[in-house]
Design a protein around this nucleic acid. Structure first.
Lengths: 204, 204
DNA sequence: CGGTTCACTAAGCGAGCGCTCACTTACAAT
DNA sequence: ATTGTAAGTGAGCGCTCGCTTAGTGAACCG
């Protein structure tokens, strides 16, 4: 049912109608892109009149921002939680890539909006999510640098390596579909092996 | 000068005004996205009246198609040319990634439109470029499979590995900018090393 | 019970969209 | 000189866009 999925995605968004609008927004933005979807598309996908959107969001852009901010916060906390519960750089990267990739596969509809509709945001809102993105990238870079200095990774430039790692994860949301050959979990595991080899992991 | 750049990108598009429109289209589509750019934006960036676009292209979508088709053909021929002049799987992948990545960095503006504005195409035109994309992916997959069977690569699933290789290249166009830390050539070389390690290359 | 608040709708406004049309200009062929 | 053609313009049509406004019904409160 619609309600249960939107509740799963955004458990603390109130009221339930606002959640339904966000869900409809995600579906529409992911399928056609932000600028190609109309407020009427979103409202009718949520089973409401066009004006209902403006009861809960001040503008179409604000709806995108709510979706984008929430999605970025989820991926950031995913990354932070891995770093918090592991200390070994190898295990950190392994779990980080597993979770990051699996999230971009399982939530590929949300992820597509989060990753590719970013530039439709007004300047101020863009800056907010850009800051979250920089935090994510910085954490990954630090883990790689740390492992490189500890001698378990062999990379030329941690900056480039971090970019490559994130590229692999982000791009999953572009091509993954529900009829993909692999489950999100399985794909995450396969990708984490690819990444560990890419980083020149020394077995210890 | 505008003419020389557009002539470099699309040497055989005639007349020169049509080329200028394609260049203006690329710049606009890359910066704001297809649906957010107006035909007036494109025309004025090309230094012409809004109606001039329709002298050379039947629609805004047809302009996008011209850009997208040309771009896809360029990347496909780039990939084909590497396979044509090398036989060793390792060297094929090395050069393929070097060139593919360097192209997506050097031509990041065009590449952005080619890779991310794809879904704005009408169905029929989309099918045309989708076919080109499948050819590119198939070639990469075959090279990896070949190397895997020859025992120089160690990959779980060639399908997944090919996706990962292309993801790295495609995603370069999303973040690369002219003030990037590395030249396109240098980035290509660094990425090709990352990819070769990712594929578990055996030194022979 | 009346009064207030809240979520929502029906109707529609002003702006800007893709695209067209009648026309002008430059230039080549006859 | 006349005609034909290709390239380009100025004006604007029909439509859809994001968003607003006035009003409705249900729920809650004294």
């Amino acid at each position: 049912m619609t309600m249960s999925l939107s509740a799963e995605l955004w458990p603390d968004v109130q009221p339930e109608t606002a959640r339904r609008l966000m869900l409809a927004g995600v579906e529409s933005f992911a399928r056609r892109g932000y600028h190609a979807t109309t407020t009427r598309d979103i409202a009718s996908a949520a089973g409401m009149s066009p004006a209902a959107l403006y009861v809960h969001f001040p503008s179409k852009a604000a709806l995108l921002f709510a979706i984008s901010k929430y999605g970025h916060e989820q991926t950031l906390s995913l990354v932070e939680s891995v770093v918090a519960r592991e200390t070994d750089p190898v295990e950190r990267i392994r779990l980080l890539v597993e979770d990051f990739v699996a999230w971009h596969a399982r939530r590929h509809t949300v992820a597509r909006v989060v990753q590719y509709e970013l530039h439709a945001l007004p300047d101020e809102e863009f800056d907010v999510v850009a800051k979250l993105r920089r935090r994510i990238e910085q954490i990954v870079r630090e883990v790689i640098t740390e492992g490189s200095e500890a001698g378990v990774f062999t990379v030329g430039d941690p900056h480039t390596a971090a970019r490559a790692v994130l590229s692999l994860g982000v791009d999953v949301s572009r091509w993954y579909s529900d009829r993909a050959r692999q489950t999100p979990k399985k794909l995450g595991e396969e990708y984490s092996e690819l990444v560990l080899r890419m980083l020149g992991t020394k077995l210890s």
